[in-house]
């Protein structure tokens, strides 16, 4: 049964139709990675799901609850940006604890949860550091921890690894896959990197000019010539064969 159900959602700014007839059905605990070029409507789509933009038409349901008129603070949907957006006035510990503190949870519960999360994120020894004193990859980990610790219904990731170097990016992909499995996170993962989309998603979506096409399996995605995967494989295959010649 679908956990995230989006039906016929559309959004225009002026005369420009940004998102057209958006349909998504995603089971709980699954990741839908969405591939698309800049300006194709990915961010607007995520913002509508998070409640930061209102759709012109269609319905958004999470866990069977209609979300269209629910404000962002009551949706339980966390939106993560490409930039980590750590609060510069708070330490690593306090950044992770932020979501629990604003819910006024018990102090000992917060402490236990934050320490557990710090260990999961392999950030031991960094808890008291300020954000400017840690690396880009570590900052992104803190950002994940701050979102996941609130136990969101749905996690929306808008090119979260876009600003990281290749090595750190690979580590973060592995970490996110592990965290997704451990915490059974339902997520939409937006990227413009084809390899990342294939690695991260249980299902893969391709967004073009505001229209989203979803492939329920990697095989279906690989088999569709529209995705451009076949061209990529041909290109790399061609390079390998040229070298061996």
């Amino acid at each position: 049964m679908s956990f995230l159900e989006i039906k016929k959602v559309g959004k225009s700014f002026g005369n420009q139709e940004i998102v057209k007839q958006l349909d998504i059905d995603l089971e709980a605990g699954k990741t839908l990675s969405i591939l698309g070029k800049s300006g194709c409507g990915k961010t607007t789509m995520l913002k509508m799901i998070a409640g930061l933009e209102s759709p012109d038409e269609g319905s958004i349901k999470v866990g069977g609850t209609m979300m269209n008129s629910v404000p962002p603070a009551k949706r339980g949907i966390v939106y993560l940006y490409q930039e980590d957006l750590l609060f510069p006035h708070l330490s690593v510990y306090e950044n992770i604890a932020f979501g629990l503190r604003i819910k006024r949870m018990d102090k000992s519960f917060i402490d236990k949860e934050v320490r557990r999360m710090i260990a999961e994120l392999q950030l031991e020894g960094h808890a008291d550091k300020m954000p400017e004193a840690i690396s880009g990859g570590q900052r992104q980990r803190v950002s994940f921890g701050r979102a996941i610790i609130t136990n969101p219904l749905l996690l929306l990731l808008d090119e979260p690894f876009g600003s990281l170097d290749a090595g750190t990016r690979k580590d973060m992909q592995l970490l996110f896959t592990d965290l997704s499995a451990t915490y059974k996170i339902t997520s939409l993962f937006v990227t413009h990197d084809m390899k990342e989309a294939i690695l991260m998603g249980d299902e893969i979506g391709l967004m073009r000019e505001g229209r989203l096409k979803i492939y329920k399996s990697q095989q279906a995605f690989l088999a569709d010539p529209d995705t451009g995967v076949a061209n990529e494989i041909d290109f790399w295959g061609g390079l390998t064969s040229n070298k061996s010649d």
Binding site: G51, L52, A73, I77, Y81, F98, I102, T150
Partner: peptide, 9 residues
Amino acid sequence: NLVATLRGS
């Protein structure tokens, strides 16, 4: 927006 999605008022 981040604070809002983290359920902040």
